[in-house]
Amino acid sequence: MKHALLFLLPVLAAACATPGYDYEARMAPSFPQAAEYRDIAVGQFRGPAGNVAEAEFADMVEQVTLDGAYWFTLPSGEPMGLYQGRVDIESWEAETRFEREKRCVEYDGLFDCEHRAIVETECREETVEVVVTADLIDYRTNRLVFSQQQLGGASRETCVDVAEYEYHGEELGIWGEPHYSSYDPYNAPIGMVEDATVEAVRRFRNDIAPYYQTMRAEIMTDGLTPEARNDPRFAAAVKATRDGNFMGACAQWDELGREWTHAPAVLHNLGACAEARGDMATAQLRYARAAELAQAIPLLEDKKARAIFSALERVSGRRMDDALINSILYPEDPAPGS
Results as ranks from 00 to 15, higher is better:
R205E: 07
Q148H: 08
L285Y: 03
L270Y: 02
A263T: 09
A237S: 10
P210K: 02
W253S: 02
R103E: 13
E122C: 08
L300I: 14
L329M: 12
P75T: 10
A13M: 13
P79D: 02
R46I: 14
V193T: 04
E99F: 13
V160Q: 03
P29F: 04
V42Y: 00
L74P: 05
P189R: 01
R38N: 06
V160H: 03
A235F: 06
V87E: 00
E313I: 15
I137K: 00
W92G: 00
S147G: 11
S91C: 09
H179D: 10
Y167T: 09
L12V: 15
E292R: 05
T133F: 09
D59Q: 10
Y167I: 09
V130L: 02
R143S: 12
E171M: 14
Y167G: 00
G81Y: 04
F246P: 06
Q213H: 12
A58C: 09
E255C: 11
A294K: 02
Y165V: 13
G43M: 07
G317E: 05
T18M: 09
G77R: 04
A41K: 11
A251R: 09
A94D: 01
R233G: 06
L110K: 11
V162E: 00
D302H: 10
M192I: 03
V64H: 00
M1N: 14
R46S: 15
L256T: 07
P19G: 01
D231S: 08
Q63E: 11
A55F: 08
T261W: 08
R143F: 13
V145A: 01
A290M: 08
L144P: 05
P185W: 00
A307E: 10
S327W: 04
A28P: 07
E62T: 12
C159V: 11
R202E: 05
D243Y: 04
A200F: 06
D22R: 13
H115T: 15
S338D: 06
T65S: 06
S30P: 05
A34F: 03
A272Y: 03
E129S: 10
E95S: 05
V87H: 03
Q84V: 15
A53Y: 02
F146V: 01
S316M: 10
Y165F: 12
R140L: 13
L74N: 10
M215C: 11
S147N: 07
V87P: 01
L5V: 15
Y183H: 08
L285C: 05
C123K: 06
M27A: 07
A15I: 12
W175D: 00
V266F: 02
E122M: 13
T127Q: 02
E199Q: 12
A15R: 08
L300A: 06
A290P: 03
T225N: 00
E24V: 15
M80G: 10
E126Y: 03
F204W: 08
Y186K: 04
C16K: 10
Y23T: 08
W92Q: 01
T158C: 04
V105D: 02
A249K: 01
G109P: 11
A281T: 14
G20V: 12
T18L: 13
G223P: 10
R258I: 11
Q213V: 15
A240Y: 08
I40P: 00
E164N: 05
K102T: 15
F111A: 14
L151H: 08
M280R: 07
T96N: 03
G176D: 04
A288M: 07
D279E: 05
M280C: 06
W71G: 04
I89V: 15
